[in-house]
Amino acid sequence: MHADGRHSYRLGDADAHEAGLVTAERRNALTFAGKLAFFGERLRAYAFGGDRPGDHGQGLLPALAGTLTLVLLMSLIVMPIGVAAAVHLHVYAGHGRIGALVRGAVGSLAGVPSIVYGVLGLGLFVHGIGGGLDRWLHADRLPVPTFGTGGLLWAALTLAVLTLPVVVATVEQGLARIPDTQRLGSLALGATRGETLRRLLLPQARPAVLSAWILAVARAVGAVAPLMLVGVVKYAPASPIDAAFPYLHPSRQFTHLGFAVYDQALISPDALVGVPRAYSAALLLVALVLVLNAAAGLVGRRLRDRALPI
């Protein structure tokens, strides 16, 4: 028995195999410091992976980082395009048949099942654009694909397409809520349409832009099915973010919390270990969405409190 109350049982290899035991602790006998150390060790194994049979090979931290990176990259793609599309619809295509057609199309896109976007991403981004890039930039390495396989960038693009309708619709509604008298008041003071948009309308639509972003993130985090087609993996051989320049490697495959839930719950050989891990991954995923929403809410309150800049 160790001084800290922890026992190590030395078992023969055959016994250990038979008993399924790798380590054993008398947890009730642990001192406070020992408990802390034990807790820290389990937390480390949870995050980075441990050597117990139940420990996820890589831990859940890469999955958390992968999810976060994916969502942020997707936001960087979808928000400018979505806001620009909403502005165009509101300001320039508001009347007439084309505006109605585009609005109808955006509405229907929002109802398309996410797996369909996965197929689109696989065909268009991975095989189409990715394959083309490989033939152009990495012809020497073919047939080993660089861009022509699932990866973070293609998954982010796929999710951007998936969330575009909700961003366009939300931002356009936000713009439509601003009374037309504001727009006319600005025009009557000699502002051009562009100046009115930039100085008056877009600043007032910021809460809507923020809501659009929250909705986009919520939809993107929940969409696991399309990711399976465009780059999510159980174990990423190399993380898409690391210390090597250029730090973000958008062509690399990645792991994702949503996929970890699926993987642990259904694929894990040991249900007693896998199902709780799936639950914990799911909890982590929900917590991530909550944290992102709370952050967006804080930013939103700051935006509202501040007088609009000119």
Binding site: T181, Q182, G185, A191, L308
Partner: peptide, 23 residues
């Protein structure tokens, strides 16, 4: 032009008056 319903911009008093000049 002045409109029927007063509808100031969501800015400060100062910036409302300065709006056209800033342009």
């Amino acid at each position: 032009m002045v409109f029927p319903k007063p509808d100031p911009f969501p800015l400060s008093i100062y910036e409302n008056v300065a709006y056209g000049l800033r342009l």
